[in-house]
Write a protein that binds this DNA or RNA. Structure first.
Length: 571
RNA sequence: CGGGGCGUAGCGCAGUUUGGUAGCGUACUUGCAUGGGGUGCAAGUGGUCGGAGGUUCAAAUCCUCUCGUCCCGACCA
């Protein structure tokens, strides 16, 4: 491709709207243009990257035995009523009406559509298992779109849905998809990790997320450096702090201390000059019209997901100030467990504390040297209700956890038979009985991968695309193209030779100064560059430089095509 | 939805406090020079100052409403 016949539009300065490095670079490189909040045009350069990713996904999905189809982006409300998700999905779903006032949505996902296909087409166990996939534009009306295509409203996703007679078959396909996804992300050139995840609103049992590791990621991941354990922090189990936990015996007597206006654990710890880990925070919640106090160590964070999984706390909400006053006689900031033994839910880590500080249930007072068994009755409910922190014991018993951040680029689920039951997607088994199909679903955020890859691969000059998804593999920068007939002749010849060798070369034939061409090509992240100049040709050389290289190297003109070909193979 | 910020040329910004009819850098156009890291000089093009209403002799500037957008929070396959 000649630059003069393509479309490149770069910016020296990034628009203020961009915060994230990948977002800035995508705008500066002219990969995307914003049309509205969470809505982006993929410019020609960006589309080439997107297509490369799609093709890798397509190849690996096909290899795994999945079959491609394409479902409508707009879906009728009826099928969503069948699963109850017309209401459940909430405002994230963009609902629209046609001219007859009939309800539709712009598909945020396609379980309903594919299950409708399955119930119409699949009648017999002999047709199973089947795995359908598509690469499609979806729309989710995010509360707050941000970071460009990282969290946009319209986005491109590969979604696959598998159908099975039983969970053994589902397990097999789940494993195939797990392997295929690993293959895909490796081929793209991402530094990623598969982590155990919560199945979330979509329902189901087993689930893994695939995360690109990046400090800017929106998700926190707990992993064990000494094993392959990795889980979303929402899911990671917090073990007791020590391997044989016990409640220590008190050594000091309880005291009531005046702590004027000190409401948070941090404020109290500073005021009393004690470590934050020796304070206990008390959260008042209501669940099923009953009042509970959740106790956590001062430096720990509540994990709402874990609390919601406790049957009698499901659907809990923070208590109002009115309710707190009624039950404890005080205001938030000074609540404590002493004297309220009956409604305590205690995190495991708290049970290993002694002589701790907590609210006194009286405004502007806290208690110090509080201890279980003596000041508080041994609680009935000691549970895991906190987020793990760096240094916690790994649930697989193989070391300590560390926390890192990740960008979710893929997610695989076992759905079971929720959708097949709701929508009566049944098949006849060997004995002629009608059974609901077992289902799995598997998704990759195709457009998000572009941002994630850039987040992981860039430098001060701009993007460094992994070869597999680069818009072009090579750029030819001529110096003196208009002035020097020999340069022009060699450049044209090389351009033809690369084309014949199936190398995707971009020829920068603009009448620009070398510095401009270098800067642009580095910004848009072309992995390999050759420079053709009068100076080089006199010595019989072409200059080569990889995007990550510190310096250029001279390559004999006669060898350059072979040289580049080998570069493309080894990378 | 709650809190905060910002809307002035394609992009980055000044001008708003104290009203007087719009400016800088860059990009773009033209010419000359230059030709290995965003080159130099010169001359140009481009803005109903987000929109509507109001105050005033006069509004980018003051007032009211409105729209858009970004950040923080709650949400999320």
């Amino acid at each position: 491709m000649r630059v003069s016949q393509f479309f490149i539009s770069t910016l020296k300065e990034a628009p203020t709207e961009a915060e994230l490095i990948s977002h800035k670079l995508m705008l500066r490189a002219g990969i995307i243009k914003r049309l509205g909040s969470g809505l982006y045009t993929w410019m020609p350069l960006g589309l080439r990257v997107l297509r490369k990713i799609e093709n890798i996904v397509r190849e690996e999905m096909n290899k795994s035995g999945a079959i491609e189809l394409l479902m409508p982006a707009v879906q009728p409300a009826e099928i969503w009523h069948e699963t109850g998700r017309w209401e459940v999905f909430g405002p994230q779903m963009l609902k629209i009406k046609d001219r007859h006032e009939h309800d539709f949505c712009f598909g945020p996902t396609h379980e309903e559509v594919i299950t409708d296909i399955a119930r119409r087409e699949i009648k017999s166990y002999r047709q199973l298992p089947l795995n359908f996939y598509q690469i499609q534009t979806k729309f989710r009306d995010e509360i707050r779109p941000r970071f460009g295509v990282m969290r946009s409203r319209e986005f491109i996703m590969q979604d696959a849905y598998s159908f099975h007679t039983d969970s053994t078959s589902l397990d097999q396909t789940y494993q195939l998809m797990f392997d295929a996804y690993n293959k895909i992300f490796s081929r793209i050139g991402l530094n990623f990790r598969a982590v155990s995840a919560d199945p979330g609103a979509i329902g189901g049992s087993r689930s893994h997320e695939f995360h690109v590791l990046a400090d800017s990621g929106e998700d926190a991941i707990a992993f064990c450096p000494d094993s392959d354990y990795a889980a979303n922090i929402e899911l990671a189990e917090a073990l007791p702090l020590s391997k044989s936990p016990q409640t220590p015996a008190p050594t000091n007597s309880m005291q009531k201390i005046v702590t004027p206006n000190k409401k948070t654990c941090q404020e109290v710890a500073n005021f009393l000059n004690v470590p934050l880990e020796e304070t206990v925070k008390t959260l008042a919640v209501m669940a099923n019209d009953k009042f509970f106090l959740l106790l956590l160590r001062g430096d720990h964070q509540l994990n709402e997901l874990k609390v919601n999984k406790i049957p009698f706390l499901a659907g809990f909400q923070l208590a109002t100030e009115q309710q707190i006053l009624e039950k404890t006689g005080t205001v938030p900031g000074f609540i404590g467990p002493v004297g309220l033994d009956d409604c305590l839910i205690v995190d495991k880590a708290v049970m290993e504390m002694k002589n701790f500080v907590c609210g006194a249930n009286e405004k502007d007072y806290h208690l110090t040297n509080v201890n279980f068994d003596r000041d508080i009755k041994t609680p009935d409910h000691v549970l895991d209700i906190r987020n793990v922190v760096s240094g916690d014991l790994s649930p697989d018993g193989k070391g300590q956890l560390e926390i890192c951040r990740g960008i979710e680029i893929g997610h695989i689920f076992q759905l079971g038979n929720k959708y097949s039951k709701d929508m009566k997607a049944n098949y006849l088994n060997e004995s002629g009985q009608s059974k609901p199909m077992e289902m799995g679903c598997y998704g990759i955020g195709v457009s998000r991968i572009v941002a994630a890859a850039i987040e992981q691969h860039h430098d001060a000059q701009g993007i460094i695309f992994p070869l597999a998804i680069a818009p072009f593999q090579l750029v030819i920068v001529p110096i003196g193209l208009k002035k020097n007939a020999q340069v022009k002749a060699e450049v044209e010849k090389l351009y033809q030779e690369f084309s014949t060798a199936n190398i995707e070369a971009l020829l920068d034939d603009r009448d620009e100064r070398p510095g401009v061409m270098f800067a642009d090509m580095e910004l848009i992240g072309i992995p390999h560059r050759i420079v053709v100049s009068e100076r080089g040709l006199k010595a019989g050389n072409i200059e080569y430089r990889g995007r990550r290289d510190e310096e250029s190297q001279a390559v004999p003109l006669a060898d350059i095509v072979t040289f580049i070909t080998s570069k493309l193979c080894t990378n």
